[in-house]
Amino acid sequence: MQPGALSKALKGGAIWGFIVLQLIFFSIAGEFLALSDKAFMDYENMLLLLKQSAPIGIIAMGMTIVMVNGNIDLSVGATFAIAAIILLGSMDMLTGTLGDVMVIPVAWFLALAVGTLLGALNGLIVWKTGVDAFIVTLGAMLGYRGIVFMFNGENPTSHLNWTLVDYAEAQFLGLHTATWFLAGVTLVLWFVMTRTVHGRNAYAIGNNREAAVNAGIRVGPHMMINFAIIGFLAALSAVVFYSESGSVNPNDGQLYELWVITAVVLGGTRITGGAGSVIGTLGGVIAIQLLRKGLGHIGADTSTVNLVIGLILIAVLFLDRQLNVKGKEELKI
């Protein structure tokens, strides 16, 4: 087998193979180590796992397209928190005038619009100033988080809308509402990235920006669209999650960017752009959630979980690098 073929096969299928391995491992280990009698691969348990994957997963889909494009967005956690506060805050203020039901679409719209705008703002700055996306969104991460604290200080913002809670906890065809959102977002972005001109151009830009410019592709607008999409998805993630929980702390969503990037990279997206897939990211998201849940199942604490995920991430990138070395004659730098 050629080195390229092996690495491609690994990239395409590895994450799903990894998931299967985890399922087998935790099922067997669970028999001996688990604290509860319930089997790990219990149907309810798996459904819950998908639902719990949704908040990170929805954002990870957006991160995939931003990273394929050759950028990165560190501000998603803060955008997530802002959208959550807009959602709950606006419901708190408007329920009196609009009533319990009509306030829902208005609050949703406001939260999603703000998220989209914040994302687009990142994109606009990256486009117009030419500053690296890492720096721009690092600044945005701090700045947006600052805005979160300006709303309500250290206090949580709360509002429970029971209509919304019922809706969020509903199960349609067995799957939870959040899972449906994750599935829908995955499907739509898969379509965008594989079937539309915008998606293909995003790959081209991330892969060889100069070639894209030479071919007359307008790099800036494509980047801005992708940043707007990730902003929208960060807000959508908040909308899905807080419709159910009804209370947001100003620190919520912190470190989300790192979990999201971890999932995307595990899913095979190249950190420098140009390669990766939305489906792979879905695998990465599920793999991480499975690892957390599985290690919890066999009695490991959170710190162990983080250690293991960190080690796996580095191992994956090392493996990828080893498989991609082009040959001995390459310049050793």
């Binding site: 293909r200 790959y203 081209a204 892969n207 060889n208 100069e210 070639a211 894209a212 030479n214 071919a215 140009g274 390669a275």
Partner: peptide, 9 residues
């Protein structure tokens, strides 16, 4: 002369 191609596509 210098290739101006996106390799992944």
């Amino acid at each position: 002369q210098e290739l101006s191609l996106a390799e992944e596509l």
